[in-house]
């Protein structure tokens, strides 16, 4: 009987400890889906489909400083043509 009380008491303490402590990192926040678009910070133009994704079609401003390869949805064809 005494034994069981001891076990129960220890388990309670462990549970309290688990519940009361702060865990590492920020609390998980579920971010909803979003849709937005980027306009050229240089000339204000929008990004249009045929013009490719890496540079602004109007003033040549660099949106992305890399070359796209064949990925999941993004493909080589999405690079802006020089």
């Amino acid at each position: 009987m005494e034994e069981q009380k001891h076990t129960h008491c220890l388990l309670e303490k462990l549970k309290q400890k688990a519940k009361e402590q702060k865990f590492y990192g920020n609390d998980y926040v579920e971010e909803p889906a979003k849709l937005n678009s980027r306009t050229c910070t240089n000339c204000g133009a929008g990004r249009a489909k045929e013009d490719g994704l890496t540079h602004c079609a109007y003033c040549g401003f660099e949106f992305l400083s890399i070359q796209l390869t064949d990925g999941i949805h993004l493909k080589k064809e999405d690079n802006s043509r020089p």
Binding site: E62, F63, L64, S65, I66, L68, G71, L74
Partner: peptide, 15 residues
């Protein structure tokens, strides 16, 4: 700092 957008990084990371 890397000069890329999330869409590029998400794909690179998954791949």
């Amino acid at each position: 700092a890397l000069g890329i957008e999330k869409a590029v990084f998400d794909e690179a990371s998954a791949l």
